[in-house]
């Protein structure tokens, strides 16, 4: 059963087409790795799913509700409702620097009054434990390592109980020795059947954890399939060339 349906997505900046006819589905419990060279439109595609980018034409449907249908966006209330089903983890974490780890997790649920305060506190404590940062609840982001920041960002996204988690190059800003702890958390989420779309350069993660890989180049999806097939037996020269460069 598909939870996200994207069809004929197009976006351009002036003459530059950054997305050309992007079409794909994501099923519930899928872990989709989106790979491809820099500037291929991966991030733009991901960001358009949560309305951080406006597309020019095409449709995005999330669990049966249209965020945008044939290039026409829904009303803002509807957009809010639809995008609230998705959480997003950014390359540069985007934690709120003036709040402690705990406040970062709790600020949005508190302001949106999703639950009574004591339940929000309970949930934030549980999630911090889950990402292994219970002891840093009162720390400010400035005092965390990159890997810790990204784990806080993941916990913060989970506070909103999203159906789908989107990751935009979650380990690209990290020192190589810190990527492991973040990937580990993501792997746990995958094991708990969280639906995830991960734009990534981590081929190992894509191979090991994803059940589908999408290769994008130059604003198009060149091919997609199970990582085992895509990585070992790519059908297109562009995919082969990219994989040869990345897997060296």
């Amino acid at each position: 059963m598909s939870i996200i349906e994207v069809s004929n997505l197009k976006k351009s900046y002036g003459d530059l087409e950054v997305l050309k006819q992007i079409t794909f589905d994501v099923n519930k419990n899928d872990v989709v790795a989106v790979i491809g060279p820099s500037g291929s439109g991966k991030s733009t595609m991901l960001r358009s799913l949560v309305h951080l980018e406006e597309i020019n034409s095409g449709s995005i449907c999330v669990s049966g509700d249209y965020l945008v249908k044939d290039g026409v966006y829904s009303k803002s209330q509807e957009i809010k409702k639809i995008t609230s089903k998705m959480g997003m983890v950014f390359q540069h974490f985007n934690l709120f620097p003036h709040m402690t780890v705990k406040e970062n997790l709790e600020v949005a649920p508190r302001m949106l009054k999703k639950q009574p305060a004591h339940l929000i506190q309970q949930q934030s404590a549980d999630l911090l434990e889950k990402v292994g940062l219970s002891d840093r609840a009162t720390a400010y982001p400035a005092n965390l390592s990159g890997g810790q920041k990204q784990r806080v960002a993941i916990a913060r996204a989970l506070m909103m109980n999203p159906d789908i988690l989107l990751f935009d190059e979650p380990t690209s800003a990290l020192d190589p020795e810190l990527t492991g702890e973040v990937l580990q958390v993501m792997k746990h989420l995958a094991e708990e059947h969280m639906t995830m779309i991960v734009v990534t350069h981590e081929m190992g993660f894509a191979k090991e954890v994803a059940n589908r890989a999408i290769f994008m180049d130059n604003g198009e999806i060149i091919e997609s399939g199970h990582p085992d097939n895509l990585f070992t037996n790519p059908q297109y020269d562009r995919t082969k060339a990219f994989l040869n460069r990345s897997l060296k």
């Binding site: 951080l52 809010k80 959480g87 997003m88 950014f90 985007n94 709120f96 302001m111």
Partner: peptide, 21 residues
């Protein structure tokens, strides 16, 4: 950083909440 606005938006905060908080 514009990431602060983006994170707020994705968490569902409205413009006023994003500004004040």
């Amino acid at each position: 950083d514009k990431g602060q606005y983006e994170a707020s938006q994705v968490l569902g905060l409205n413009k006023w909440q994003t500004m004040t908080r």
